[in-house]
């Protein structure tokens, strides 16, 4: 089982610090060094390289290159679809797994985790063996004129697979801890399933849901191995942004490669900011809820 990755921060006041000052300073220094060298310097490096030719060079690298523009459009159209599919699946899976008991429940939970255990390259290969020309359905699909492999539907399929567990993993522990009392009460007061979902369940889980969707989206944007195999990485057709980064790098076009990489880094920083704001927001809601309870 994966733990829920959403964390509500506790206040620091209650900490016990019994280490001597020099040891604390040493450990904090080590933390700065590790995060600095592994995370902070690489972020700075991306932008230094991207702007090596100045602003005009940077903009030109992004706008003048048709294949790069296409890759941006492709990534921005594939990732939201994967998030949408996995949000629907996540809600359905969390609903049946947390509100009902049935045989095979554990098996289903295990299956939901399998995409984390399979190499994305193998994921791409699996879909190639199903829908490619040497695959089971490939020849039939070609007769019908349906293109999945080396085309947009294949990208969506592979990205959806790789990001499958994110929303469900966030919702299952959340809905388990919420319990079903409010929902049972709503039903016994005559709520229909539609009202139950929109008025009771969704308002209760919305922030966990958003959190899962943010993570799902980040992973969908960054997916490389699965789309590399299924897309055939054709420039201007099936290259997503991460694939474009690789192709420009292979073509010794480092400024172009880093320009695309800088956009991806900005998206990643946006993801971090979104998560941070969301965690603060939830912590505040819990705090106000607690003071309400104490007040009565």
């Amino acid at each position: 089982m994966h733990p829920s990755s959403m964390r509500i921060k506790k206040s620091v006041g209650a900490m016990v610090a019994t280490e001597p000052f020099w040891l604390r300073a040493l450990l904090i220094g080590a933390a700065y060094l590790i995060i600095g060298a592994l995370i902070l310097v690489p972020i700075v490096y991306v932008f230094v390289q991207a702007f090596a030719e100045g602003w005009t060079g940077y903009i030109n690298n992004l706008v003048r290159d048709k294949d790069t523009l296409h890759s941006i459009w492709l990534t921005l159209s594939v990732a939201p679809l994967a998030v949408l599919f996995n949000t629907v699946l996540g809600i359905a899976a969390a609903w049946c797994l947390t509100r009902f008991k049935f045989p095979g429940r554990t098996l289903l939970v295990t299956l939901l985790d399998v995409p984390f255990a399979i190499s994305p390259v193998v994921v791409g290969l699996m879909f190639l063996m199903l829908f490619g020309m040497q695959g089971f359905f490939g020849p039939t699909l070609q007769q019908w004129g349906v293109k999945i492999v080396f085309a947009w539907p294949g990208l969506v399929l592979a990205t959806t697979f790789v990001t499958l567990p994110f929303v469900a993993r966030e919702l299952i522990p959340l809905m388990e801890s919420l319990g079903d009392e409010e929902e049972v009460a709503a039903v016994s007061l005559g709520a229909n399933p539609w009202q139950l979902f929109w008025r009771i369940t969704l308002p209760n889980i919305k922030w966990g849901l958003v959190y899962g969707m943010i993570q799902c989206n980040a992973r969908a944007i960054g997916e490389f191995g699965a789309v590399y195999v299924i897309s055939g990485h054709i420039a201007g057709e099936t290259d997503t942004m991460p694939l474009r980064v690789e192709k420009l790098f292979q073509e010794y076009n480092n400024p172009g490669s880093f320009a695309v990489a800088s956009l991806l880094t900005l998206m990643a920083l946006g993801t971090l900011l979104g998560k941070y704001v969301l965690e603060l927001w939830i912590a505040r809601q819990i705090a106000s809820h607690q003071s309400d309870v104490e007040g009565t």
Partner: peptide, 8 residues
């Protein structure tokens, strides 16, 4: 590292 594409 969770948010940044690994290719980057």
């Amino acid at each position: 590292p969770f948010a940044l594409p690994t290719a980057v």
